[in-house]
Design a protein around this nucleic acid. Structure first.
Length: 461
RNA sequence: CGCGGGGUAGAGCAGCCUGGUAGCUCGUUUGGCUCAUAACCAAAAGGUCGUUGGUUCAAAUCCAACCCCCGCAACCA
């Protein structure tokens, strides 16, 4: 959380939201947790840049994140700030419980006083011993750290990943992690206070603060009041959604922590790709950053959710361009879905069709849809739903209800329209995890005496 | 030889695991319809499937080598 909410966060939240809404459709009681990771050197650095203290910095940021999540219509149930008192206390308890697997050792390596970080030997060689950002020579530095013995759990983690007891999606990431796990050394989990103050204090050692990931990963269980309470009602999690860049922490360090605590591992870790801007990584220095707020304000929230859930691959990096976005908006949201609702509502209205609400409340989900959703293939599942929408447009053309009306075939007409409306309402349910605001509007149109929406669902400019 | 992903019509992608007339969306062209947000439906044009070699009756698909693009490489979703 060392910057403002960006498009990557949005994707992460939206994916998790679709998952939560889907399981609610199935009738599950879903706990959906979000939060902010507020410690660490980057945040300390940023706060210092602004000349304010860390707490002020994160207090301001957290509001932005909460507003952002709200704006995305994300149906979370719990929110953790890693600077919450109760979180900090519980993390210290977790540290104590893991102490068997923690040891102190010194780390020696090349360090840049400008970057305030250690660099790898390879990086050292590539830069000929001089930091390109600061034009300073790297220094050999030695510092005392606590280490967490990943080695105690490697075999168990490997087994869990290989057997899919802890399923890592997509498959190629699973392979990547298995490789990484083999080579994974014990991980440094603290920093001396002389280097970094902004972190949770290591219990019984005033000289050290915790490495942010120990602190951040714990949030998944501190929210459940661990360790004071039994968490088995909610843990293990059905799924955790992470960017591919932080998968390694979730797939190696986090399971090791859980095993150390004697807790089960999450059932699924879904690693999503990054959003590229016109094929390139978004970065402030290049100036190609796409602001999600701008997209939402211009086209509406569901247009945003639509694009990022359907045309952005769930697992791979994908490209955002305004042209692609606008094409999808016009051709698909406005023409396929918006126009379908409009024409069907008008036909129904002209012919005084009355929809009996009680006949359409049943949540029938198709098997194909569920299969894809269960495998977290959200974009593909969304495609499937869209095919059905296009199918309805085709069906209206084939059955020509306007011709039936002209010929005075009232019974046939009523049957035809009722049946198409029933299908639309079925589709609407499958659509609801993705674009909930729109599906709500659609259900309101087709209740009682059908009336076309006052405003088009997706107006074109 | 660090690890991984990718190279298929103008663009974006699927197909590859489990070889057998190359498919989807957008764009383009033509036709149909008129309920609808100049929307909808149908049809057509357009590809030597990165390169080279191998296996096979048959390769986008399997094997080998090579070329090119892109991520990751400890605190960035």
């Amino acid at each position: 959380m060392n910057g403002d909410p960006h498009i990557g966060h949005a994707v992460d939240y939206c994916l998790a939201d679709v998952c939560a809404r889907y399981y609610r459709l199935l009738g599950d009681d879903v706990k959906f947790q979000a939060g902010t990771d507020e410690h660490g050197s980057k945040i300390a650095q940023k706060a210092a840049d602004f000349g304010i203290n860390e707490k002020e910095f994160v207090d301001e940021k957290v509001d932005k994140f909460k507003d952002f999540i709200k704006k995305l219509n994300v149906s979370y149930t719990d929110f953790v700030r890693t600077t919450d008192d109760w979180h900090e206390k519980r993390v210290q308890e977790i540290w104590r419980k893991l102490s068997k697997h923690i040891y102190k050792a010194s780390y020696k390596g090349w360090y840049c006083t400008g970057c305030e970080r250690f660099i790898t030997d390879k990086e050292y060689e590539e830069n000929d011993g001089i930091c390109p950002d600061h034009q300073k020579s790297y220094e050999k530095l030695e510092e005392e750290n606590y280490y967490f013995k990943i080695s105690d759990f490697k075999e168990q983690i490997k087994e869990a990943i290989e057997s899919d007891k802890m399923l890592i999606l997509p498959d190629f990431r699973k392979k990547e992690i298995l490789k990484l796990l083999e080579e994974s050394p014990d991980v440094s989990i603290s920093r001396p206070k002389s280097q970094l103050q902004w972190g949770i204090a290591v219990p019984d050692d005033d000289s050290q603060v915790m490495y942010v990931w120990i602190d951040a990963l714990s949030n998944y269980i501190t929210i459940l009041d661990y360790p004071e309470k039994d968490i088995s009602n909610w843990w293990p999690a059905r799924a955790q959604f992470v960017g591919k860049d932080i998968l390694r922490f979730h797939a190696i360090i986090w399971p090791a922590m859980l095993l150390g605590l004697g807790l089960p591992l999450p059932q699924t870790i879904v690693s999503h790709g990054m959003i590229l801007a016109d094929g390139k990584k978004m970065s402030k220095s290049v100036g190609n950053v796409v602001d999600p707020i701008e997209v939402i304000d211009k086209y509406g929230l569901d247009a945003f959710r639509y694009f990022f859930l359907r045309h952005i691959d769930t697992f791979n990096d994908s490209d955002f361009t305004w042209t692609k976005f606008e094409d999808a908006y016009n051709n698909e949201l406005a023409n396929d879905l918006g126009n379908l609702v409009q024409r069907l509502a008008t036909l129904a209205n002209k012919n005084n069709i009355i929809v009996d609400e009680s006949k359409h409340g049943i949540k029938m989900l198709s098997k194909d849809y569920c299969d894809l959703m269960n495998n977290f293939e959200f974009a593909k599942s969304f495609d499937l739903v869209w095919e059905k929408i296009q199918g309805l447009n085709r069906r209206i053309d084939e059955e020509k209800p306007w011709a039936l009306a002209k010929n005075g075939e009232k019974v046939k007409l009523e049957e035809c329209l009722q049946s198409i409306i029933a299908d639309l309402l079925k589709i609407n349910i499958e659509l609801s995890p993705f674009i909930p605001e729109t599906t709500e509007k659609i259900s309101k149109v087709f209740v009682g005496l059908v009336k076309p929406p006052e405003k088009p669902l997706f107006p074109k400019n």
